[in-house]
């Protein structure tokens, strides 16, 4: 009996949706986790996962029933997307997910948040934000590829809530998350939904996702 592939931990949190663990998704993760994968391939295959993630995330937005006339003169009972949306990426790694969002929503507005670890307190600290003026009226897709400790994502959600966005209208999209990070996040940000590609085994002693894929931003932008 051959060993089976490792799939995501099943979500026990009602706020957390894990993308369907299909063979091709696992194959994509296998490539981006591989330390020997070159940056070109890392970018390409990450983008494919991001697009799948965005498609899944968009399914959590509201729709309404609508009837439309078809080219064959029959009426089609369909669905119409409702509500304005915007993307907010947590710099720098989150910006890697912007193209995937644009591939699905052409003219989507995108805000940015820069959060860095404060050298003195070791706590995440907001350094910069640029968000759409009417963000409180929009559904927000918060983009950050890795949910490790949850620290920066929680700070980002606090920024959004301070701008008047209800927690229920925030969707946090990430590729890989940890049970520890999710636990901290759902306690700190009740009502916010998480869409993740994969819940990994754990957070290691260096506060990295394990097995994870290393530093996403470095691998996507630099190495």
């Amino acid at each position: 009996m051959s060993k089976a592939a490792t799939l995501s931990i099943t979500s026990k949190w009602p706020e957390v949706t894990v993308v369907s663990q299909t063979p091709q998704l696992i194959a994509l993760f296998t490539i981006i986790r591989d330390v020997n994968t070159k940056r070109g391939d890392f970018v390409f295959y990450s983008d494919r996962i991001i697009r799948i993630l965005v498609e899944e995330g968009l399914n959590h937005l509201p729709v309404k029933d609508i009837e439309v006339p078809t080219p064959t003169d029959v009426t089609y009972d369909g669905l119409q997307f409702e509500g304005k949306i915007c993307g907010v990426s947590i710099m720098r790694a989150g910006e890697a997910m912007e193209q995937g969002l644009r591939d699905c929503c052409r003219s989507v507005r995108i805000g940015k948040i820069l959060i860095q670890r404060d050298e003195e307190t070791a706590e995440p600290k907001l350094f910069y934000e640029k968000l759409p003026a009417d963000i409180k009226d929009r559904y927000v897709l918060l983009l950050d590829p890795m949910l490790a400790t949850g620290g920066s994502a929680i700070t980002a959600v606090e920024v959004l809530i301070s701008k008047g966005v209800p927690a229920e209208r925030i969707l946090f999209l990430n590729l890989i998350s940890t049970p520890e990070g999710i636990e901290t996040f759902v306690k700190a940000c009740p009502g916010v939904k998480i869409i993740t590609g994969f819940i990994d085994k754990c957070l290691n002693e260096k506060k990295f996702v394990s097995p994870g894929l290393g530093d996403f931003g470095d691998r996507y932008y630099c190495i």
């Binding site: 060993k3 592939a5 296998t30 591989d34 085994k201 097995p211 994870g212 290393g214």
Partner: peptide, 11 residues
Amino acid sequence: VPTPTGVPYTG
């Protein structure tokens, strides 16, 4: 596959 964190991943 070997990952950057040193823990292998079975995919």
